[in-house]
Design a protein around this nucleic acid. Structure first.
Lengths: 152, 152
DNA sequence: CCAGAATTAATGCAATTGCATCTATATAAA
DNA sequence: TTTATATAGATGCAATTGCATTAATTCTGG
């Protein structure tokens, strides 16, 4: 647990598991969405944030903070979402540079359809494999790996 | 823990943590490598497998099994590695379709230089934040999320 | 008010990924 | 054998990502 230049075997193993499992889970969920003829996970992340934000919408830079996507990535993802009619871009009164992104009814519907599949993946891949206590344990331990670290 | 169409709050939170933390950690490690003027993590994964395989090398399809990369991805990654002189492609005696990939001295050296940085990232991001017991707990819990699930 | 720095978002271009397909060889079946 | 099927790996083309830069405001210090 002390600062080392070379990681302990335990740290290496935990890291390896984390890398491998997260990749597998993402791949599985992504595949399930694709089979359902739905957009990729990244779209869900954004639609989810926007749905939670409600009518007020969010500024692109707020989406960046919340989702950890790169700026250019959000910029283009929003362009695609807008082209598909899932979000709309509104000028923002007090800042001529910016815009507010609001989810449309269509967007909410797509998000719901995605959740039907995405949620099932989560239930199957994670919910069905660990008990509630174990899941809480995972959340707590992973929470300590955040940047910046937190305990929550 | 039972099969549900809709995931429990605990499952959702654990999933969210896993997605977010893994992305953050990857990003951090990737950035550290870039700052060191070194190739991306994907290269390390392949070089690592090849280094472990030794002089006998590995067939591309074996790399696919071990790393979970897509076939076309490995095909092109190997082309880049070869172009950089980090691996060499050898014809394989008993199968005219295939080839054996072997890491070169240069490749071993690059892998070592990458590990100096990558290993430090693992130590800092994971090793320094959880005790050995906690790391083992993480490994065990994540191990149960693998596909197919295992206990190890 | 004005010049310089900072912030918000978009974009040109190169590299990578994803998809579908293709070539070549090996294996199985008739 | 001959033919059909499966496996190993490469590749054309479209979509996405990453990088660097740009354009348009807004903010800040004289």
């Amino acid at each position: 647990m002390t600062e080392q230049a070379t990681p302990s075997p335990e740290a290496i193993k935990a890291w390896a598991r984390l890398m491998r499992v997260s990749r597998q889970l993402i791949e599985h969920a992504e595949e399930a969405l694709k089979e359902g003829g739905l957009p990729p996970l990244a779209w869900y992340d954004v639609l989810h944030e926007l749905a939670e934000a409600g009518e007020g919408g969010l500024r692109p830079f707020q989406l960046i903070e919340r989702t950890l996507f790169a700026q250019y990535n959000i910029s283009r993802l929003l362009a695609r979402l807008e082209a598909d009619g899932l979000v709309e871009k509104l000028p923002v009164a007090d800042d001529g540079r910016g815009q507010t992104i609001r989810i449309t009814a269509n967007g909410r519907d797509t998000r719901r359809r995605m959740w039907a599949i995405y949620g099932r993946s989560i239930a199957e891949l994670v919910g069905a494999r660990l008990s509630a206590d174990e899941l809480n344990m995972v959340s707590a331990l992973l929470g300590r790996l955040r940047y910046p670290p937190a305990s929550d």
